[in-house]
Design a binder for these strands. Structure first.
Lengths: 335, 335
DNA sequence: TTGAAAGCGCTAACAG
DNA sequence: CTGTTAGCGCTTTCAA
């Protein structure tokens, strides 16, 4: 690979001049400019990004840390983060932690040592290392999808309480009266947020919430399966189900269908996240969507602002969830 | 962030010594070694990877280029590539091209300028830039999932002909006699490979293949939908369907069910790739799996070997697909 | 065994 | 307007 020196030699100028032409940082005589450009073409010169980074103490890379790429919700995040990065001409380095703090710490370490341009975290746990970063380095950090108790870190988050409200309201509108809620791990803060909104809305509408029908699991397909089998085995009666994410909902629907219980005729099921298969399942899945695209873009805007030296005073950006009605719930039911 | 100089000063040694301790590249007196280690701890020193890369002309990064992260098959590839990278302590930079050659060229450009450690391509097109890389740079390149006509580039690929054979054989075993094939874009080489294996096997078993039931589309859900609606509208009779990937199969199954045609009782459907939702759909989807994990690992092994100076003489690594029987096909049918 | 010095490829004062 | 020089943080001869 040719370097600036080669170009300079061919063009008969100094390498500073080459640099100036490339970044047009100063006025360079037209003739020299032309000679330099020709030389660049001749040797097919491309500036070395590593050298540039070392000199400028900044890179064209941003890093994304998230728990698990197999998870469809995170796949959405990765997709949109990739797009926003690409729009800015930034490279995206991804790290999947598999919920292992060691791996998370390692990822952070690598990023910092690479002088990365910014770090985006998706769903860190409370024991996460994020705080340490913001204290010891000046790398911009944004947390997405999960609020931290420490409010000093810019974060973009969903109004999860509102999601619970929407789910409950829709199920009630469908005529459901015995409503189940299948949640993710109670260790994740947003799980209880969503649940609170859900239960509060039921109570507001004078629908009793039965603790029997509150199943705490993980954000997985298996949780949906296990929950429904548990309900059926114990003859718990229910006519509506909220799976706190679409995977739980799919597990629930599959299991219901397997037991010859019709969806939505016998039981309405609503999911959350609007992952890609939600519209492709049969029956297609009513769900509560997160504006992932906007949220990811917002995360980048935070990084842009911090990078340009702006002091963030308003750390939190809250986004509103919205309902997408499909086949797995029915509103034709008469009350 | 502290540098080697800081450590050296505190330890009262030269920065060369610090470097030697870090890489234990030479013998250093125990006392000095200890002093250096203490100093490192005091200032929480972490070597700057950028500087290291500039000096050593190599990085800890590898790049992955693929068409579309929304595609479940590529999500599998990304997942396993990430794991293999992580096992080697390498960072993964991802680039989604959206089938745009401009973007592909840009990605390559960025990677080369970053002195990346290796590039993995997934499903490149013939107009791709891959060849140019191998000619002008010494960056290791591996192609995965798609054969190139130019055999000089290491590549890992599936025996797609065999996949077609397996699909046809299984459908025949299920008692199907009027068998449809829904394919991806005929512009992609492996599509016709798969199709040839499929048709040859039918013929070998004296099952007629009707051109009516050969539907060429894209590797998408919509293709499955459109194909089945097309068949039904024209009253083409069929009792078995191979969707050349799981998305096509899901589109087909959903549409059949929507038209009250039972799967597998009336029509057996088999997909391909064993993407994550294949086992979660209802009915769960019989599919032809690719050993993605092994294929991705193999791609890395190619890079490892090239990096360590080995000359590759055997460019192609072929992997065998295998059948996973689930609910969407039935073998209980009597002939 | 260790330090001094050179240099990876680039940019940014600083002179001229 | 342009060339010289220094230096980003590291590794590696080369001497000592």
């Amino acid at each position: 690979m040719s370097s600036m020196k080669d170009v300079a030699k061919i063009a008969g100028v100094s390498s500073s001049t080459v640099s100036r032409v490339l970044n047009d940082s100063m006025f360079v005589t037209e003739t020299k400019k032309k000679r330099v450009k020709e030389a660049i073409a001749i040797v097919n010169y491309k500036p070395n990004l590593i050298a540039q980074s070392l000199r400028l103490k900044t890179t064209k890379n941003i890093g994304l840390i998230f728990p698990e790429i197999s998870d469809p919700s995170f796949q959405m995040v990765v997709k949109y983060i990739e797009e926003s990065a690409s729009d800015r001409g930034l490279n995206l380095i991804v790290f999947s932690t598999h919920d292992d703090y060691k791996r998370e710490a390692h990822a952070i370490d690598m990023f910092l040592r690479q002088k990365i341009n910014g770090i985006i975290f998706s769903r860190v746990s409370d024991e996460s290392q994020v705080r340490n970063i913001t204290e010891t380095s000046d790398t911009p950090v944004v947390v997405i999808d999960r609020v931290l108790t420490d409010e000093k870190i810019p974060n973009v988050v969903l109004n999860n309480y509102r999601a619970g409200e929407i789910a409950a309201k829709h199920l009630i509108d469908c005529g459901c009266r015995k409503i189940a809620c299948l949640t993710g791990s109670p260790k994740i803060g947003l799980v209880s947020e969503r649940f609170r909104g859900f239960r509060d809305t039921l109570q507001l509408n004078r629908i009793p919430f039965l603790n029997n029908l509150h199943f705490e699991g993980e954000f997985t397909y298996d949780t949906g399966v296990v929950a429904i089998e548990h309900f059926l085995k114990n003859s718990f009666d229910f006519d509506g189900v909220w799976g706190q994410n679409d995977q739980i909902a799919v597990g629930a629907i599959s299991t219901l269908l397997r037991y010859k219980i019709r969806v939505p005729e016998d039981v309405s099921v609503i999911g959350m996240d609007n992952v890609s298969f939600a519209s492709k399942f049969f029956p297609s899945i009513t769900t509560i969507a997160q504006p992932y695209k906007q949220m990811c873009e917002k995360a980048f805007q935070f990084i842009d602002r911090i990078s340009s030296g702006e002091i963030i005073t308003h750390y939190q950006a809250v986004f509103e969830p919205f309902l997408i009605v499909r086949e797995s719930t029915t509103s034709v039911r008469t009350e």
